[in-house]
Amino acid sequence: MREYTDKIRQIARRLLEEGKVDRVIGFKKGSMPMMNEPCVIRRPQDADQLIWDGNCGINLANYLTGAKDKVGVVAKGCDSRNIVTHIIENKLDRDNVVVIGVPCQAMIDKRKIAAAVDGEISEVTETDDGKVVVRGNGFEKTFDRAETLQDNCAICVHRNPVICDEPVADPVPEQTDVDRYADIRAIDAMSDAERKAFFDDMFAECIRCYACRNACPLCYCPTCFVDESRPQWVGKGQDENDIRTFHFLRAYHCAGRCTDCGACERACPVGIKMRVLTRKLEKDCKELYGWEAGMSVDQRPPLDAYKPNDPDAFIK
């Protein structure tokens, strides 16, 4: 990861020195183990604050929405697909963004790691030979990095940026033999009652902080439907129907757009696994329209284009 960091700093410094961008958005080291903070760099001499490691899971496309200046952005595979989505949805001008593309080696999951050790973690280091070393008061434990990945990264098939102006490294091999939808098929196969129980259980702890929504680059509406007050579509308390309405409707709003970056799950303070909703819709889009979100700036998404041969068997 050291090479990635060096290269990112070098590119950012050069872009700022040459005036190609007004600012660069990337990550700086956080104040806790397994946390980095998204940051903006405006002067070449500050480029050395930038870093890269397995804790850069926040999707930086979220910080680009509506940008009108020239901006460089450090982007892994999923971030780049959300940048493409921003461009398609006219939230960003391709000419204004310089993509500093990171072939992604997958992000580590701070919750998984915390759950696998007893006691508070004081330091986590990633080694060059694919290990994660976790230290805390009186313990040290080494994991295979592959065991510690964020759920979405473990099944990711687009680790390399799909648009890239400044590559940070050579492309990494893509995973080909992953089953992205095993859990979705299991939910599809449930009876109505089982499925209701599954979702009731899933949302039971939601506190409606909306971190999932706010971490998502797709959720850029000036006023989200849950915040509308004239008329008010959704109640604001802890009523379970209101909580479900929020989650299901938000997922629908992400249909054909979600890149499964995992930022939503990563941000949730209570560990709710809401990606099953967006992945169900991702699966439908793939099966019905052969569509994967954010792969090309030249193609309209299926949900905003009509084709005479669009499948319609689900309209009853």
């Binding site: 940051c39 506190i207 902080c209 909306y210 971190a211 706010n214 009523d239 303070p269």
Partner: peptide, 28 residues
């Protein structure tokens, strides 16, 4: 500006905080 840059304006910090007390009144 620098402090706020990365904030996604979720309510996590305020909802988890023992000393945050603000509320909203709603009719349902």
């Amino acid at each position: 500006e620098d402090v706020a840059f990365s904030c996604i304006n979720c309510g996590t910090c305020t909802y988890l905080c023992p000393t945050c007390w603000c509320f909203d009144i709603q009719d349902e």
